[in-house]
Nucleic acid binder design. Structure first.
Length: 286
DNA sequence: GCCCAGGAGTGTG
DNA sequence: CACACTCATGGG
C-alpha cells in the first residue's frame, strides 16, 4: 500500500539515522525501511513530502508514521527556546530536521536495556535477532518486535546465543515483571515518578530510564547522559561530574525541551569526533 | 590484536 | 558522595 504524508521540517536521514532507534535501516537507494507494529514500512523523502509504502498495509499506517516522527512537535518553538543558549544556537539551524522519535514503550525499554555498553551496530543486531526469532513474520526478512508473550518464550541460553551476553538475564526478568498495567501506569505518571519506576526495573539505571522516558514515553524534558553527552558537556560547557550534577545543569539550561537539546548535542559530538578522526588520518598520510 | 561501546549492579572508602 | 570493579562481547 502506497501513501504520502507531509512533514516539515524533517530530515529523515538525521532523524532515523542518528541512533535514536535501532530498527530503521537506510537502503542503497536512500530510502529507509523499518517496522511499525505489524507493518513493514518504506519511507522516501522528497523535500517536504514523504512517500511511503506499507506491507501489508491497512488503516492507520499514515497515523503511525506521523506518531513516530512526532509531527505534533512545534520545532520552531522548540528551536526558539533552545536558541537562548548561545552554544546550542551555533550549529542548531542545520539540526532543524532532526526530530525526536516516538517509539513503542515496550520495544524502547528492551532496546535500551540491550544498548548498555554496546555500540550501535551491535545493538541493531541484537534487536534484529529478537525480531527474527520471537517476532511475527511480516514480509520477507521483516519481523515485528516481539511483545511480552512472544519474548517470554525465550530462554536465557537462547538470548545469550543471540549475542546479548549479560543483558539476557535482564530481558528475562523484564518479561516476568512487566505486565499490561505496568506500562499504562507509567504512561500516566508524572515524569519524576515515571523515571523512578523505570530505575527500579532490573537492567535500568538513570541513563536507560532517561532514554525510555524520552523516546518511549515522549517526555521531552528528559536528558539522557551517555559517554557522548558527557564529552559534549565537558568540551562545550566545561561541565563534569556525576550524573545527577550534569542532569541538574541540563535541566536549568535547556528546560522543558532538554530532550531535543540532548539529541542535538549527541549528534553534534559524534560528528565532531568523526571530523577529528578524518583530520587525523589525513595528517598521517602526509 | 587493540580499543571502545547511547551502563548497570555491587561493594568499599 | 565518589570511585573501583565486574559483567560479556562484537564492531571498527
Amino acid at each position: 500500500m502506497r501513501f504520502e504524508i507531509e512533514v516539515t521540517p524533517l530530515d529523515l536521514d538525521l532523524t532515523l539515522g542518528c541512533g535514536q532507534t535501532f530498527r530503521w535501516r537506510c537502503n542503497p537507494d536512500g530510502s529507509w525501511s523499518g517496522v511499525l507494529g505489524d507493518q513493514l514500512i518504506d519511507l522516501r523523502q522528497k523535500g517536504p513530502r514523504i512517500l511511503g509504502e506499507a506491507i501489508p498495509g491497512g488503516r492507520g499506517v499514515e497515523e503511525s508514521v506521523l506518531e513516530l516522527l512526532r509531527t505534533q512537535d512545534d520545532i520552531g518553538k522548540i528551536q526558539r527556546r533552545l536558541r537562548r543558549d548561545p552554544v546550542l544556537a551555533l550549529g542548531m539551524t542545520r539540526m532543524k530536521g532532526l526530530r525526536i522519535v516516538k517509539l513503542d514503550e515496550w520495544e524502547c525499554l528492551i532496546s535500551y536495556v540491550l544498548a548498555t555498553y554496546a555500540n550501535i551496530p551491535r545493538i541493531m543486531k541484537m534487536v534484529e535477532g529478537l525480531g527474527t526469532n520471537y517476532g511475527r513474520r511480516i514480509a520477507h526478512g521483516a519481523y515485528s518486535f516481539p511483545d511480552r508473550g512472544q519474548l517470554s518464550k525465550a530462554t536465557t541460553k537462547e538470548l545469550i546465543g543471540l549475542g546479548l551476553g549479560y543483558r539476557a538475564k535482564y530481558v528475562r526478568a523484564l518479561c516476568e515483571l512487566i505486565d499490561e498495567s505496568t506500562l499504562s501506569t507509567f504512561s500516566k505518571a508524572p515524569y519524576e515518578r515515571l523515571r523512578k519506576g523505570l530505575i527500579e526495573l532490573p537492567g535500568v539505571g538513570e541513563k536507560v530510564a532517561d532514554c525510555v522516558s524520552l523516546f518511549g514515553f515522549g517526555r521531552l524534558g528528559s536528558f539522557p547522559i551517555d559517554i557522548w553527552i558527557e564529552r559534549a558537556l565537558a568540551r562545550l560547557y566545561k561541565q563534569t561530574g556525576s550524573y545527577t550534577r550534569l542532569r541538574t545543569f541540563a535541566a536549568g539550561r535547556f528546560g522543558e525541551y532538554s530532550g531535543y537539546a540532548q539529541e542535538y548535542l549527541y549528534h553534534n559530538e559524534r560528528m565532531h569526533a568523526r571530523e577529528q578522526e578524518c583530520a587525523f588520518s589525513k595528517q598521517r598520510k602526509k
